[in-house]
Simulated scan of single mutants.
Amino acid sequence: MMDSIAADIRWFFPFADLRVNLVHVQAVYKPWYQNFLLHWTFALEVLLWLLAGHFALHDLRARRTIGAEAA
């Protein structure tokens, strides 16, 4: 899903060759990957990864607590 924000994804392939993206990242920096690292969409992706990690860690700790209480 995150690639749909700044990369061309063919969600309807093979039925249609339509490329879907919400934001076009301009080629401003060299090397090419800095354009993605310095774009606001990369910060959004990092934020989503951090939130997912937070919730996964919270769930893991909750399961350990429940398992320790049952023993």
Rank of each mutant, 00 (worst) to 15 (best):
N21P: 05
L48P: 00
W32M: 10
F15V: 14
D3I: 02
V20M: 05
V46R: 07
R63N: 01
F12Y: 11
W32E: 15
V23P: 03
S4A: 12
L38T: 03
F42W: 05
G67S: 15
R63M: 05
L57I: 05
L57P: 00
R61M: 15
L57D: 08
A27R: 09
T65Q: 09
A70L: 15
R10D: 12
S4E: 12
A7M: 08
Y29I: 02
F55H: 11
F12H: 02
L47M: 11
T41D: 01
I9Y: 10
S4C: 13
A6M: 04
E69I: 08
H58Y: 07
G67E: 14
P31G: 10
W11A: 01
A6I: 04
H39C: 06
Y33M: 14
N21Q: 09
N21C: 02
A56C: 13
L18Y: 04
E45V: 04
H39K: 00
A16R: 07
A70F: 14
M1D: 08
K30T: 10
A27Q: 04
V20H: 04
D59Y: 00
L57N: 06
V23L: 06
P31S: 08
D59N: 00
H54M: 11
F12T: 03
I9D: 06
K30G: 07
A7C: 09
